[in-house]
Design a protein around this nucleic acid. Structure first.
Lengths: 203, 203
DNA sequence: GTCTATATTGTGATAGAC
DNA sequence: GTCTATCACAATATAGAC
């Protein structure tokens, strides 16, 4: 219990509340009043700690990137067999996002509206590209895998993993899945996505 | 030139402008002033033709669904071999969305914010599920394909096809793709996605 | 630091002349 | 039908007491 030391300082309460509201509603949809309510304070205090809504938002966005992105991508750097890496990455990614289901649409929206925010991400991503590329190249040289563009492959894995979260209401609505059935649907993908990808790579 | 008859009526100009602005900014982010500017008129006229912002938005949303969704999904009903169907679907979908790149994120956002809007979509989607399911079942019974959940499969195809549009700035930023390189990236997926999927299905 | 009260600005919507 | 001017309200931001 050492980790959550002093999470009850006002600034922390604001950051926590703002994170929830911004992720649910986005920069445009979020209201300072709602953030204040969720933090159990009033609007004036928000401006006392962070000069403006925009400043608060940028602080949140930074925090999310430093916390969420590494958590989702860390496994790719592990020293384990490539197939295991893919399986663990997908399974871990699904679990992490399942706990933060609004995160993907939030990140995609805010980056689409303001691509400069990407600055935080490029280093992480290009490191991943190098990592995946070298893994794939090793396997190609031993004749195990076919030659494949690492970016195309990585994009395909991410697509299949993340998209169902973005389209959750569409999938649930269109195929009449209950919340429980949708959870099962997600869990099944931990097996299916690596199967699809590895099946394509081999030979 | 018969098709574009009377596209210059004020109502048409409003609808066109509103479509552009709403798709770019979403219901929350869009401003009536911006729509008026883009239509070359003033705000008052917007309210004359459509009582409120919300009414205008719903009109746009309907129009988009009746135009865009069928255009993207029509091929799945064609009487052609399943493999050809997948290839054409992906290629067609990529082309259609490439011409309307903000459409997916718009639809996903608005449905996430108001799932009732899905009403327009469920019929189309469940028809597709039946179609894909019967195709897959035929192939399974002849021993050509493995047994597979049609929803999982369909979701995977859609994911790999649509997600790159949603993540365009991320992909471009992370992998330093120019606009031209990103176009090539998308075109390559017309081949890759069906290859991945069909490779998994066979045996 | 935290509050209440108020200023300021932005935005959807309406009134009324033409 | 189209415009200018204005209203009404919501939301961000600030002033000032405690």
């Amino acid at each position: 219990m050492v980790s959550s030391e002093k999470i009850d300082t006002t600034e922390q309460k604001i950051l926590e509340a703002a994170k929830n509201v911004f992720i649910r509603k986005g920069m445009y949809g979020a209201r300072m009043q709602e953030i204040a309510d969720e933090a159990g304070i009033n609007k004036a205090l928000l401006h006392y700690y962070f000069r403006s809504k925009n400043k608060l938002f940028e602080a949140i966005f930074q925090e999310i990137f430093q916390e969420f992105v590494p958590k989702a991508f860390s496994i790719l750097k592990a020293q384990i067999p490539f197939e295991e890496k893919i399986r663990q990455f997908v399974a871990n990614y699904i679990d992490v996002v399942a706990e933060n289901p609004f995160m993907p649409i939030f990140i995609i929206n805010e980056i689409n509206q303001n691509p400069e925010r990407l600055a935080h991400l490029t280093n992480v991503m290009s490191a991943i590209k190098v990592e995946v590329a070298s893994d794939l190249n090793r396997k190609f040289e031993t004749g195990e895998y076919r030659k494949v563009d690492p970016v195309q492959l990585f994009s395909s894995v991410i697509s299949m993993t993340l998209f169902p979260f973005l389209a959750k209401p569409i999938i649930q609505g269109a195929f009449e899945y209950s919340d429980e059935e949708f959870k099962v649907f997600l869990q099944e993908r931990k097996q299916l996505i690596p199967d699809i990808i590895l099946n394509y790579l081999k030979i």
